[in-house]
Design a protein around this nucleic acid. Structure first.
Lengths: 223, 223
DNA sequence: TCCAACAGGATTGAATACAATATAAGCAAA
DNA sequence: TTTGCTTATATTGTATTCAATCCTGTTGGA
């Protein structure tokens, strides 16, 4: 043995590493929908050849974050209102199921954290911070159960809609609706009380209400 | 323009073509779960280099049909009973939604076809034929609406569980349970009567019952 | 002025060649 | 005989190179 640090081999992971960084860039909004992605650019920026870049693009295409056209190029994926509504409807069906898997397993520590997050969202006035808190809140609800596909599928739906959730939050928060926070509190207490059916209903309604609000702001999808 | 035949360029589609053939091989059962996939073999068999083969493997990995391990190799994906049950639970939630999208759009021709398929299944005694009919029956229910992710997600769940549905059908059909056929008939009439909520319920129950039967045959997942 | 055909350049797709890694067989020592 | 190490081979990962395709700016004509 050469070394005491257990090191993951740098070989065989170049594509995954590049994909991970590009994914982050898309989720933070640094890369906007519609933006062209050049293979050479990415390769140079990561000091690699175009080959692992192509693999990274394939991975992100599978996640729906990147759109590939043969012989033509890659772009950060756009979403129409109709597509976004479809994904929200999928979330309405899948997230309650995922929550059901998690409720019996969530620790008191996570439950406390949920309360902290819900409170922080109420007093937050920065859009980016709100988005981070909201994402952590919901994903924390799913952090206890080890699922093989359900968790991934839900996470992908979150990622694909991330940009539009940001744009929507900007225009919606100014309207001063408090019911989002109310629903978060209801959800925490239902989870705390191990009321699985109640938690499922609250979560489905929460996502549904957001979808309906989203439909009132189609301008978010212009351009 | 050189030619009147509008030809899709053979360039830029090698990976997709290889993926398509390997996918078929897995779905027909020609390639069994656990089977090793050598890049060189696939490349030689398709008269291509290993590069498009790697892209094909990445695509099938994203679909869950192939499992890749860095620096090691690729195998046809296995499923445990727990994973399979999870996918069936996802189907219980997603397929009713997909059906809801389709019911208002399904033509009389498709409806007639559904009746033919349901009848053919009742009188079929060959497992492979039953599987083909059942797959066509359910996927036909989803053939009218153009969804962007929901349809793909459901199709992938069908594909990932295909092998185990085959194995399960072998042992289950011998038990002579008729309720599957009854549910198919109920579903057709609910769809024909544009009873969306009823159709959703019947379909969810249908999938749920299959999941419970599946759990009674864990031996299907041995080895 | 507008449109179509035509280079030219830029970009992607695939093949070959080489490096890194993992598996397996053989060998030595306990 | 078994265990651990070593070496050989097979397989995968990446870089380099060349070919096919697409986009763009330009030029010629109507």
């Amino acid at each position: 043995m050469d070394d005491m640090t257990l090191e993951m081999p740098a070989h065989g992971a170049a594509g995954a590493r590049i994909a991970s960084e590009l994914r982050d860039a898309i989720l933070t909004g640094e890369q906007q929908p519609g933006a062209r992605i050049l293979q050479n650019d990415l390769a140079d920026r990561h000091g690699a050849s175009r080959l692992p870049v192509r693999e990274a693009l394939r991975m992100l295409e599978a996640e729906g974050l990147v759109t590939l056209v043969a012989n033509t190029g890659a772009w950060v994926s756009r979403l129409s209102l109709v597509e976004c509504e479809e994904m929200y409807q999928m979330r309405e069906r899948l997230e309650p199921l995922l929550l059901r898997y998690n409720v019996p397993l969530l620790s008191d520590e996570v439950l406390d954290r949920l309360t902290v997050l819900a409170d922080a969202m109420e007093s937050s006035d920065d859009v980016e911070q709100f988005l981070r808190l909201d994402r952590e809140f919901h994903l924390s609800c799913y952090s206890a159960a080890q699922t093989s596909v359900l968790g991934d599928t839900v996470l992908r739906l979150w990622n694909r809609t991330q940009h539009y959730r940001r744009a929507f939050t900007r225009v919606f928060r100014s309207e001063g609706d408090r019911s989002v926070h109310h629903e978060h509190q209801l959800l925490v207490s239902a989870i705390g009380g191990h009321d699985i059916d109640g938690a499922e209903r609250i979560l489905a309604d929460h996502i549904r209400r957001t979808r309906l609000e989203l439909a009132r702001h189609p301008d978010v999808f212009d351009n």
